[in-house]
Amino acid sequence: MVLPLPLFLRPGGTKRGTKEDGVSGASERQNNLIISKQIGKGVFGAVFIGQTSANTTKVAVKRMLNPRKEFQKYAQLMEARIHMLCNNKNIVPLYGYFQTDQYFHVVMPFYVKGSLSTYMDKKYSIDRIESAKISYEILNALVFLHSKKIVHRDLKPKNVLIGEDGEMRVSDFGLAEFQKRIEGKCGTLNYMAPEVIKCQQQSYSVDVWSSGCIVFEMLTGQYAFNDEDYGCLEKKICSGSYKMHDKIPISATTLISECLQKIPSQRPSTKTLFFHTWIVDTTEEAEKKRKMEDINKVLGKNALKSDTANQWKRNN
């Protein structure tokens, strides 16, 4: 359900100390929203469950402290502005945003199934067919973002949410920027490209690097680059030092190695990756498998009906 933006853009007061929807602890009523249970926390803020006062629809509310410095205020508004441009089925939609005396709020859908990170923790590694499907959906989001000249800059399993239909949706545009002269070290180290660590100029290729890290992790249950010592980890990333796992299909190894090129210009575009052999062949195989399962279900039902009819004839 898409809620109208004006619902969250109108000024409103705050009411503390109420309990709503069986959630224990204090809740707040802000701008037609009842904000209650905290469900996540990041560097820049926390995420809460919210409900509209008009109905029981749950939403996710990202709350950040109002910054004092002008460039930080600009960054918050930039996140909302970028997110509003992202109308794609594999990107978490933005319902709206509003500001109170203390906080800046971004309102989005609440997904019960959680993130790709949570899903991977439960399964450890994901089979090649499902990994290809997930990669296809993430790349679909990235192709759209890059067509709008947007670089995500913090792509990781935790920032990929699972929709009600099971499809992946890229989220969290707190570090996203329009493609221009992007510099600075930001993101999560295990998924950070060498040029980000070195604070060099960055482009769409940083998202391509992160995609390769995610594919590696889905297929193996391990980080492509990992070390307990941050300094050693940075050196491994900058040197492109990783070991291809035996569990990774040969066609997927080419995709990963292309994404994890040290030199940004040598990495493929997201459009090229979208039509990579591993993605195309595996998703086609999955579609054929799904169709065969549907056919077998129909045949199975027909066979059951036939057996039941024959049994009835014998008994009568």
Rank of each mutant, 00 (worst) to 15 (best):
P4L: 02
L7P: 00
T14E: 12
K15L: 14
K19L: 11
D21A: 13
G22N: 12
A26V: 09
Q30Y: 05
L33R: 00
I34Y: 01
S36M: 07
S36V: 06
K37M: 03
Q38H: 04
I39K: 04
I39T: 07
I39Y: 03
V43I: 11
F44L: 15
A46K: 06
Q51I: 06
S53E: 15
T56L: 12
T56S: 13
A60D: 13
N66Q: 09
P67L: 01
Q72A: 07
Y74I: 11
A75T: 15
Q76W: 03
I82L: 00
H83R: 03
M84E: 14
C86Q: 01
V92R: 02
G96V: 02
F98G: 08
T100R: 13
Q102Y: 04
Y103H: 04
H105T: 05
M108L: 07
Y111N: 08
Y111K: 02
V112H: 05
V112G: 00
K113F: 00
S115L: 02
T118M: 09
T118N: 09
S125Q: 13
I126W: 14
K133S: 05
S135D: 07
S135L: 08
L145W: 03
H146I: 06
K149L: 14
V151L: 06
H152L: 13
R153H: 01
L155M: 06
K156N: 11
P157L: 01
N159I: 06
I162M: 05
M168R: 01
S171I: 00
A176M: 09
E177R: 00
E177N: 04
F178V: 05
Q179G: 07
E183F: 01
K185T: 12
K185L: 11
E195R: 01
V196T: 02
K198I: 08
Q201I: 02
V208F: 05
W209A: 01
S210F: 06
I214V: 14
I214R: 06
V215P: 08
M218N: 10
L219S: 15
T220A: 04
Q222A: 12
E228T: 07
E228P: 04
G231V: 15
G231N: 09
C232S: 14
S241H: 14
Y242K: 03
M244D: 13
K247P: 02
K247V: 08
K247T: 12
L255F: 07
E258N: 07
E258M: 01
C259D: 06
L260R: 00
P268S: 12
W278S: 11
V280Q: 13
R290L: 15
K291V: 09
D294L: 15
G300T: 04
G300F: 04
S306M: 12
S306W: 14
A309G: 06
A309R: 14
N310M: 08
W312E: 13
R314M: 14
R314H: 15
